[in-house]
């Protein structure tokens, strides 16, 4: 038992060191800007369509559910407001993060894992290149930039999906829907929804890179590290979402 706890603590320490070194690498030479741009292209542009599709249907489903429920209470006109707050503060950032984790996080872990197995990471070390700077920092940077961007676009698409359902299925006024959305686009809501993707991007990239770089064994080890990257990232997204929500509500003066 004590061995297991010791190993867990040691792994947590290694993860912490890798994350910090990876993050500090953004500010230290040499800058691997081409690698960072390649990663942004893969992570951002490559995830664009998937995030759009998922966000559109999440927005439509949310609007459908709320229209039905609020209709019973005679409060259909609040559909836009509730859909807007849900998406901007909570559903949008988490949905984008989960999609990003499934596509990009898994890709990072498997790519780095296969580099470890194929001795490519050893080659980098022999050539005097710091693998954390070369491999982890560009991935962290790209995730910290691209996930917030994807979240903002995803939120807009989800709100459009909500609009379509509210107006064309639930027969509500489009003007009322958009004016409700405009009302909730205040600093508090936008800030609390925008801060989360930065944290989620950091968590997904750091966990996935750590899992990839600690891959042991062959195909089985690669499967394990890829699965662990996705599972631990999802768990950490949900936990950190709760904690951030609690902190932000407190900081922004919302009373519970």
């Amino acid at each position: 038992m004590s061995e297991k706890i010791k190993r867990l603590l040691s792994e947590l320490q290694d993860y912490y060191l890798l994350s910090i070194q990876g993050l500090l690498g953004i500010f230290r030479k040499p800058f691997y800007s081409k690698d960072a741009i390649d990663q942004m292209d893969y992570a951002g542009a490559g995830s664009f369509v998937i995030v759009m599709i998922v966000s559109l249907f999440i927005g439509m489903a949310l609007s459908l559910q709320l229209s039905a429920e609020l209709g019973v209470l005679g409060l259909k006109m609040y559909t836009g407001k509730v859909v807007g707050i849900s998406i901007i503060r909570e559903v949008g950032p988490v949905t984008a993060a989960l999609v990003y984790c499934g596509r990009v996080g898994a890709g990072m872990a498997s790519e780095l894992g296969s580099m470890v197995i194929g001795h490519q990471v050893d080659s980098l070390r022999v050539f005097g290149v710091d693998p954390i700077k070369k491999l982890v920092t560009p991935r962290l940077l790209s995730s910290i930039i691209m996930l917030p961007a994807l979240t903002i676009i995803g939120n807009a698409i989800a709100l459009l999906g909500g609009y379509y359902i509210a107006v064309f299925v639930s027969h509500q006024s489009g003007y009322v829907y958009w004016s409700s959305i405009r009302d909730i686009l205040n600093f508090e809501n936008v800030f609390s929804g925008s801060i989360k993707p930065f944290m989620f991007g950091f968590l997904i990239a750091s966990i996935s890179c750590y899992m990839g770089l600690t891959t042991k064994g062959g195909a089985k080890g690669l499967r394990k590290s890829t699965t662990n990257a996705v599972v631990f990232s999802i768990i950490m997204i949900i936990i950190s979402d709760f904690m951030l929500t609690k902190i932000l509500l407190y900081l922004l003066g919302f009373s519970l």
């Binding site: 580099m115 001795h119 490519q120 050893d122 080659s123 022999v126 050539f127 005097g128």
Partner: peptide, 19 residues
């Protein structure tokens, strides 16, 4: 160790080219 490694040139099993 970076300085030590410069004294050697190593070719890994299967080449380990960056794919």
């Amino acid at each position: 160790l970076m300085e030590v490694r410069k004294k050697f040139s190593i070719v890994f099993q299967d080449g380990a080219l960056f794919d």
